[in-house]
Amino acid sequence: MTLDDSLKRAMAARLLEMADDELILAHRDSEWTGHAPILEEDIAFANIAQDEMGHALIWYDIRRSLTGEDTDRLVFFREPSEFRNAQMVELPKGDWAFSMVRQWMFDTWETIHLEALEQSRFTPVAEAARKIRKEETYHLRHTRAWTRRLGLGTEESNGRMQAALDLLWPYRGQLFSFPADYLLLVDQSLMPDLGRLAALWDQRVQGELANANLRMPDPATLSGARGQHSEHFPALIDELQQVARLEAEARW
């Protein structure tokens, strides 16, 4: 279906959030390359980082088809304040438990989100969701296995997992937030009702926490919508963009 101008604007705004989440998480994940606990996991997690980067590119490209914006400009020449990712994905990589809990929380979210996006009446989004979900099924299997392994492991591994979970928990709310005119898209069955998906996420996460011997943290939620960033974000963007900005006219 073709979108009128107001739907186009709303769709572009939402696609930017989705793409930015993937991009920034991919960047944080990639920081483990060369540092993961064992060689095989180093390769596995680098693969996951690369996959998430690929997903970002897919969402940016659909956005470009609506706005005509160049994707590289969007990634490498925006100011930190212009990024729309949730803060959860920009937090420093922490220890292995922290990165595993974050990736698992995100993968659980992404899987639920993609299942719903497959039903979108906007064909490019539905088709992309079907493609991405194949990879996401694997990611979730991988991070769920780690969540159980560390949760059920030693006192130390369980303690580190619980600490990571407690720290990340308040950030979950931003995953389910959306831009001002998003409901226009929901009305037209172009995008899913995120409130309903959030409830589903809660349910799946709770079940899995029990399997991994981890406690549900207090329900506290971080205030602040997307577009607000942590103190760690400018340094991340600086690193992400520094090569591209050395020679702004270069084509890669």
Partner: peptide, 20 residues
């Protein structure tokens, strides 16, 4: 070959190392 703590991890590691 891959190193792993259990068969599930071995299978996942095998996928990432050999089937990318």
């Amino acid at each position: 070959s891959v190193h792993a703590t259990d068969p599930e991890m071995a299978l996942l590691n095998a996928r990432d190392v050999f089937v990318r």
